[in-house]
Design a protein around this nucleic acid. Structure first.
Length: 717
DNA sequence: CACCTGACTTAGTAGGCGGGGG
DNA sequence: CCCCCGCCTACTAAGTCAGGTG
């Protein structure tokens, strides 16, 4: 291995550029930017200073003189890795210190009155089994609890745990899932949640600060002498595995991880964090060719889970940067690649044709590579694993894709394809192939990727997604005129973002409240229109002749039929009643809290009488067609003004509603975080005078610091 | 070279929280 | 001013892909 050579090289380079602290040194000076000092600071609860530091470091350049000063000023240096040239990335670090991982708290028994019931009888469960039953009880009101696979897997594992811990303690034999009643446990959890929710903001904050203080030491590590944030330092707590889609293993018990299961990865000389008392670490490793700080093997598939650095770390940033540079490099090859796969549609060799068509699908429809999956996983596919039944061919050249992709998200598209592609797909489906058979029977991702490497080193299937996403974003942003308000520009940016998200098929399930909230908005719009109509009638009641002068203006005065109007009245009255009830309750809660007498029921009655009057008034209006407006609405001018305001509100509400609808099933976040070169957004903001905060959240600004600080307006993807 | 393992990126969602509109 | 809804972050599942192995 050449590790030691490289290591020295990296150390020398870094020391020279950034005057990084010496590895072995215990000198206090040298740890100012490091782990130890950060812990001290954290214990002082010094949040202000940290924030100030971030601001202050914005403009400092990492030359050694400045650094000296900064160190003596106790300022954290910024490691601007993106200003460094061609780094060797097989070596990820030279020194690495961290404090290990944070384990979830041990399970605490439920109060003795909260129990699982079996055939109506309370069951005394051993602690471990109670915990597992609790996992299920938590999910009682979710679709998981209704899923037979979930139930079966849960029940199997639950029984195992129960047997291993000696069975129930009151002689009840649990034999059937259907006889188990989790509702008492569930109710208890709901109650706990409500208690937590009803705590005052103060109490919540106190608890949060306490927790943060406790977690502080795990939050940071020291990598090559720099303090960097750790991402997921918390060990995943035990739970029932919640696989997505039709997952054969969903509901299985994800077991508790012990220190003995954990492998820590640190620098050779780094102190080994003490394991929880009475325990030992599974293994200590010193592998500087990997990014992870700790790992363990989970029990569902036997795969690994890793503790790694946060998204804002230099290592992650460098990978990210490399990813986008690789995608940009594809610009120089894409024409040739496209030309060649078109040629190969006619190749005499089946493999070549399959490769050509696969690359076409990946390039044009942004499909994923599509690796083979086992029976133990959900049946989802990507390009190479597409089967006969996933595409339908409609001559002359229409293809309907319908399959479940990553996360069991449906990919459904009816598209026109190149006629030669159509012919080839027909060929790939030709008998003896039938449903269940692979379309690309000569391909797999590894073969395809090796083929792609011929065009460009490092070119793989996923690079096309990044390339096409960022390319599309660039094109969409180019179309936006530099005019209008920031809000308008943002709307257009989001529309561009949406185009990319749709290309990548990034979906989200409509939230539970979505239908309701849409209905509410539509109701509101309907009510605005009704109000408008009323006000116009009001104008005519003051000056009946107006209808002759401007008939168009009054065209809509009877556009709402009586039945709908009655419904609107009902809604408004109902809302008012609800409002007063809430107000009454709130007021009394307050009084109770302050030790005052509650309001008498009389007060509520008085309030509700007002509503009754309103109801009465609406009924009269409906019968007579004569509106009774507020006393202040006593002139045509005032009415016209009010109508204008209503028009404004109607149109903004409609735009908002449309935008919300367009976005309801599309997730913009995934493409923003993973596919759109952040430099595009930075340039957009600079050029269009949009504050970057409007587009990147705080954590995204940290993740994309390299982009924010490295481009000017002329940069293009 | 097929297969597996290990390490990394990409993905949607739950739930807390804060800001804008009634 | 209050409430609600939409945004944000934390979480962890589910992909991709390289490289080792027999």
């Amino acid at each position: 291995m050449t590790v030691s050579d490289d290591e020295d090289g990296v150390i020398l380079k870094r020391r020279k550029l950034y005057n990084v602290v010496k590895d072995e040194s215990d000198d206090e000076e040298n740890h100012i930017t490091g782990l130890k000092s950060s812990i001290v600071k954290a214990e002082e609860g010094d949040e202000e200073t940290k924030d100030a530091k971030l601001v202050n470091t914005d403009n400092d350049s990492p030359n050694s003189d400045d650094l000296e000063e900064n160190v003596s000023d106790d300022l954290e240096e910024d490691y601007k890795w993106w200003e460094e040239q061609d780094k060797d990335d097989t070596i990820k670090w030279t020194t690495l210190e961290h404090n290990g991982v944070l384990f979830p708290p041990p399970y605490e028994a439920l109060p003795s009155h909260v129990k699982l019931y079996y055939e109506g009888n309370p069951v005394d469960l051993p602690l471990e089994a109670e915990e597992v039953a609790g996992f299920f009880a938590h999910l009682l009101e979710t679709p998981h609890a209704q899923n037979p696979v979930f139930q079966k897997n849960f029940f199997e594992d639950f029984k195992h745990v129960l047997n291993d811990t000696g069975g129930t303690q009151n002689g009840i034999e649990i034999e059937s899932f259907d006889k188990m009643d989790f509702s008492a446990m569930h109710d208890y959890f709901v109650q706990l949640k409500e208690e937590k929710k009803s705590m005052t903001a103060m109490q919540k904050k106190e608890i949060r600060l306490e927790r943060e203080k406790f977690e502080e030491k795990y939050k940071f590590c020291e990598l090559d002498g720099r303090r960097e944030q750790v991402g997921n330092f918390k060990v995943e707590p035990p739970d029932l595995f919640r696989g997505r889609g039709a997952h054969p293993k969903t509901g299985k018990l994800k077991r508790r991880i012990r220190p003995e299961d954990i492998v820590l990865n640190l620098g050779e000389g780094a102190p080994i964090p003490p394991p929880p008392s009475g325990h030992q670490w599974g293994e200590i490793r010193h592998d500087n060719t990997v990014q992870w700080l700790a790992m363990w093997r989970e029990n569902i598939f036997g795969s690994f889970k890793y503790v790694r650095l946060a998204a804002n770390s230099s290592l992650k940033g460098q990978s990210d940067f490399k990813k986008f540079e690789k995608a940009r490099e594809l610009k120089n090859h894409i024409d040739r690649i496209r030309k060649e796969y078109r040629n190969n549609f006619k190749s005499k060799l089946m493999v070549e044709r399959q490769k050509a068509v696969a690359v076409y699908l990946i390039d044009v429809f942004a499909l994923r590579a599509g690796g083979e999956k086992s029976e133990e996983e959900a049946d989802t596919v990507g390009c190479c694993s597409l089967r006969y039944e996933h595409i339908t061919l409609k001559p002359p050249n229409t293809v309907i894709f319908d399959f479940l992709g990553k996360d069991s998200i449906r990919f459904y598209q009816e598209v026109q394809v190149d006629p030669k592609v159509f012919k080839n797909l027909a060929l790939f489906k030709k008998p003896p192939k039938q449903p269940g058979h692979q379309l690309f029977d000569r391909l797999d991702p590894s073969l395809l990727n090796k083929f792609l490497q011929n065009y460009m080193t490092g070119l793989t299937a996923k690079v096309f997604r990044t390339y096409n996403a960022s390319k599309t974003m660039q094109e969409q942003l180019d179309l936006i005129p530099n005019e209008g308000s920031v809000a308008e520009k943002l709307l257009k940016y989001n529309a561009a973002n949406r185009t990319v998200a749709i290309l990548c098929n990034h979906q989200r399930t409509v939230t539970a409240g979505h239908a309701k909230s849409v209905a509410k908005s539509s109701d509101r719009i309907e009510e605005f229109k009704w109000q408008k109509e009323r006000l116009k009638k009001g104008i005519l009641q003051i000056e009946p002749d107006r209808i002759k002068d401007t008939p168009d203006y009054f065209e809509d005065i009877n556009s709402i039929d009586k039945e709908i109007e009655a419904k609107i009245h009902e809604r408004i009255v109902e809302r008012e009643i609800q409002k007063y009830h809430n107000k009454f309750k709130r007021e009394n809660d307050k009084r109770k809290f302050e030790g005052e007498e509650p309001l008498p029921e009389e007060t509520l009655k008085e309030w509700l009488d007002n509503v009754k009057q309103l109801k009465q008034q609406y009924a009269e209006e409906l019968a007579t067609g004569i509106v009774q407006l507020k006393a202040s609405m006593n002139s045509v001018e005032k009415l016209e003004k009010a109508i204008e305001r209503l028009d404004q509100r109607i149109s903004t509400s409609q735009v908002q509603l449309q935008d919300r609808e367009a976005n309801s099933e599309v997730s913009l976040g995934t493409s923003k975080i993973n596919y759109i070169d952040p430099r595009l957004s930075v340039v957009f903001c600079k050029k269009y005078g949009v504050p970057i905060e409007k587009i990147f959240t705080k954590s995204l600004r940290e993740k994309f610091k390299w982009a924010i600080e490295s481009v000017d307006e002329t940069w293009r993807f």
